[in-house]
Nucleic acid binder design. Structure first.
Lengths: 186, 186
DNA sequence: GTAAACAAACCGACCAAGCGGTATCTTACA
DNA sequence: TGTAAGATACCGCTTGGTCGGTTTGTTTAC
């Protein structure tokens, strides 16, 4: 009779995804503290019991969100590198563009990324991922000058998160072009 | 008889400072989650009631810690700028050195800084502070190329926090020298 | 000069709320 | 008819915060 989740068509994959997206949205709106099991469940239109059916505990939820993010970033980098001319700085250019793109995406999970700093486990996973990625491109992107460019991209991303999407300085396109140009210098 | 805070000489300023330092220390050791009212009070040798006598609520405590940090950073920048040769990029050089120094300081409150991202109010205050500071040095440090250098410094700082004090790439001294050199290019 | 009066510093016990998590029961679907 | 999806009710714990009382320090009145 009542339209509870009992008689709603059961689509677990869909609910699972709704939970992940709810977690990301909450993190972006209210920061890390906004991610409570209850709030995530509410937003996804499920009860707490329902959430715990999909995820063993809160940490498992967060880990899943993190996986979700890494996957997206991985795809983004691969796609951008395929479009690049290759050679010296190929990965760094993809990294820069990805960083700038990432800021506009709804599902980037910026606040979530910040949570890495809080959680040592996530920190280690991130480090493992980025190190592996860098090692793959050591032949083209190990130059210190390229490292500086990637650091600047990180700084820009951080500034944008910090300033609610409005970093100071020159317009994003100009800055991005500037960084890309730097990857082509000796 | 017992050395409670009752018979201890009353030095509210000192106790207040002890509370601030306790909060910073806890944040560095255990991350943001480590800052509980009880823990801060314990570490400062005061009870929870005593803490709430000095600060209206937890947020007031955190705000005060933030002020404390900004003051230190302000002093650091002033000191470094006094040592600089002046002219183009003077502020940016001080900013870079301060960023690198900051990482080694015990009272830098890295985890606290991260909490800015979580708290929108702190975020705005930070932005106000940095904007004012930049405006003061607009004549020497408004060049886009200097902006890139400052972003790289931010990126380095963030990487260091993320990787538990061990960022990848070349040694810190070399990177710092590289960034300083960039402030002197056309 | 001293004693009363007042305010500031601080304690310690307590509370309500919210947290993550569990156990048990219903419903839907294959 | 069994199993996965989900609801509901509950538990133990921690948290931020309150409140009345106690001690110390300072001011005021005589």
């Amino acid at each position: 009779m009542s339209t509870t989740a009992y008689n709603r068509p059961k689509q677990p994959e869909q609910v699972r995804r709704a939970l992940l997206e709810a977690a990301v949205a909450l993190a972006e709106e209210q920061g890390l503290g906004g991610i409570t099991v209850q709030a995530v469940a509410d937003r996804a239109g499920v009860t707490k019991g329902g959430l715990f059916h999909h995820f063993a505990n809160k940490q498992a939820l967060i880990d899943a969100v993190f996986d979700f993010m890494l996957e997206q970033m991985e795809e983004s980098l691969d796609r951008l590198m395929a479009q690049d001319e290759g050679g010296h700085g190929a990965f760094t250019r993809a990294y820069v563009i990805s960083t700038f793109e990432c800021c506009d995406m709804a599902l980037s999970g910026q606040a979530l990324t910040i949570s890495m700093v809080t959680d040592p486990a996530l920190r280690r996973r991130w480090r493992g991922w980025i190190d592996a990625r860098l090692a793959r491109h050591a032949d083209t992107d190990s130059a210190p000058s390229l490292h500086v460019v990637r650091l600047a991209a990180d700084g820009y991303w951080f500034a944008r998160v910090l300033h609610d999407g409005d970093p100071g300085g020159e317009p994003p396109e100009a800055l991005q072009a500037r960084l890309i140009a730097l990857t082509r210098e000796t």
